[in-house]
């Protein structure tokens, strides 16, 4: 056990899984960085240096830099997965899904079902989500609700180093396509992470904080925003239960409902847009299955319905903050 960043935890998880199973390969743009360029052959390890060192350790047969051709290498990764390899395909920013959407949602997600269960597609797609770097609308979205729409995919949104490493192991070992969403603002977050490999099962929400007054379901980076709000609310005597679903497919609705049945109030904090998202989905599930337990309307804390701006002041307005969460909790507590 030692303190590791989110970046280190993911890197360590990849290294351990690649040692554990020789069929695990890494494919993507600049996963090594520097292919054919004449300088360092392991120059980048991805733009955030998450896969740094893997080329040196595992060689070019298992760590493959691709051209900027998401459709081709994603299709290739699916084909390789259907052939028994366990590719980890790096879709640098989840916003780039647009150029390989067909491969992920029409090929990977349907492969097993449409062909009557003949195949397993043990593919992991690692991809960065989230705003905060001031890099505007095409590099900052949270598209896990889009992935979560498609039956056949599994979707993982680790909110910290411990979960990232354990969920990544599960993703790579899983026999279905998994979209693994890394929030780019979390790479420097530090936490105790076991040195040994470990796998966290999908569909098991984490009770980050227990409390009896309000349930706050928060996703990915928003877990930390919710915790900031919860600590502050505790000083007012309001006990918030903060739940991190950890995976959106499968979604642990049981734990959310169990908590709402105890607290009677629900606030959902999501960095994805306000429409057709996980916040809407979770609100719908709770309204359907635990309506009688609710003492107040459900409140969603999400960004507004807008593309993401680059200007720091506008981007700050976009991302939900603890103040908004506190306001929402006050509202469901009837303390406006």
């Amino acid at each position: 056990m030692s303190k590791k960043t989110y970046r280190q935890a993911i890197n360590e998880g990849l290294v351990q899984e690649m040692h554990r199973d020789p069929s695990v390969i890494l494919i993507g743009e600049d996963v090594a960085g520097g292919a054919g360029a004449g300088g360092d052959v392991d120059a980048w390890g991805g733009p955030m240096a998450v896969t740094k060192g893997l080329l040196s350790e595992f060689g070019p047969k298992r760590v493959l830099d691709t051209p900027i051709s998401e459709a081709a290498y994603m299709g290739l990764a699916i084909g390789a997965a259907a052939s028994g390899l366990r590719p980890v395909a790096d879709l640098m920013f989840n916003d780039f899904i647009g150029v390989c959407f067909d491969q992920i949602v029409n090929q990977a997600a349907k492969y097993r079902y449409m062909y009557g269960g003949q195949d397993r597609i043990p593919l992991t797609v690692r991809t960065m989500i989230g705003a905060g770097l001031g890099i505007s609308s095409q590099h900052s979205q949270c598209l896990y609700p889009v992935f979560s729409y498609f039956a056949g995919l599994k979707v993982v949104i680790p909110s910290g180093p411990y979960d990232a490493k354990g969920l990544l192991a599960s993703a790579i070992r899983d026999d279905d396509p998994v979209i693994f969403c890394e929030h780019k603002m979390l790479y420097e977050m530090v936490e105790e992470v076991p040195d040994e490999p470990y796998a966290i099962p999908f569909g098991e929400a984490k009770f980050v904080r227990e409390g009896e007054d309000v349930t706050i379901v928060a996703l990915s980076r928003m877990v930390h925003i919710a915790m900031e709000a919860a600590e502050s609310l505790a000083k007012e005597g309001i006990g918030c239960e903060v739940i991190d679903p950890r995976t959106t497919t499968p979604l642990d609705t049981e734990s959310i409902i169990e908590s709402v049945e105890e607290t009677g109030r629900l606030v959902i904090v999501d960095e994805a847009g306000p429409r057709c998202g996980m916040a809407s989905e979770i609100a719908a599930v709770v309204a359907e299955e635990a309506f009688s337990a609710l003492n107040a309307p459900i409140i969603k804390v999400t960004p507004p319905y807008t593309p993401i701006p680059a200007a720091p002041n506008l981007e700050k307005l976009y991302i939900p903050d603890a103040g908004q969460v506190i306001t929402a909790v006050h509202k469901v507590m009837g303390r406006e």
């Binding site: 354990g166 470990y198 227990e210």
Partner: peptide, 14 residues
């Protein structure tokens, strides 16, 4: 719940 979770965390280690 947190006792159960701590135990699960420990049991998960390879």
């Amino acid at each position: 719940r947190s006792m159960v979770e701590d135990m699960l965390d420990a049991k998960r280690i390879e």
